[in-house]
């Protein structure tokens, strides 16, 4: 297999859909069921990245009551900083790190997306792990 064939294989499962007013990414997350579930993460026209509330919705579906996991979820969000919970449900990234390449400065949207994926991974596992206020993970 070469890079081109591998990119084709990846593209079949990680879809990026471009609209004039937003970009949607469909990622196959493993959320504890037998099969992976496709999650949509979207950038809107202002560059705001959101999970549409799916992460907490899926966790709630699995565990019922989120109350025992609130502290871990809060610690995850405090530790990662850039990812915020809005309206009690949606995970959102509104600001992105500024990076420079040569004399050009740019906002690191891909880095913000990567942090969002890490936060989703941790929150999806909130019933198996504990995260303390320093962001350190341990098994429940």
């Amino acid at each position: 297999m070469d890079a081109r064939a591998l990119n084709e294989a990846i593209g079949q499962g990680i879809r990026k859909v471009y609209y004039p007013d937003r970009i949607e990414l469909y990622l196959p997350f493993f959320i504890g069921n037998e099969k992976s579930e496709e999650f949509c993460l979207a950038f809107d026209r202002d560059g705001v990245l959101s999970d549409g509330g799916r992460t907490l919705e899926e966790l709630k579906k699995r565990v019922g009551d989120l109350t025992p996991y609130r502290e871990t979820i809060r610690n995850i969000l405090d530790h990662f900083g850039t990812v915020a919970l809005e309206g009690g449900q949606k995970l959102v990234v509104r600001s992105f790190q500024t990076c420079s390449f040569g004399d050009k400065e740019y906002l690191d949207y891909a880095g913000g997306l990567s942090r969002m994926i890490r936060v989703i991974a941790l929150i999806c596992a909130a019933d198996r792990i504990k995260v303390d206020e320093d962001g350190v993970v341990s098994l429940c």
Binding site: A9, I10, A121, S138
Partner: peptide
């Protein structure tokens, strides 16, 4: 398993493991 699914699973596992103290 698709390559995409494998990438996400490994990325999710890395996300948890690299936060160990």
């Amino acid at each position: 398993m698709s390559v995409a699914e494998a990438i996400m699973r490994l990325q999710q596992a890395v996300s948890l493991v690299c936060e160990l103290g």
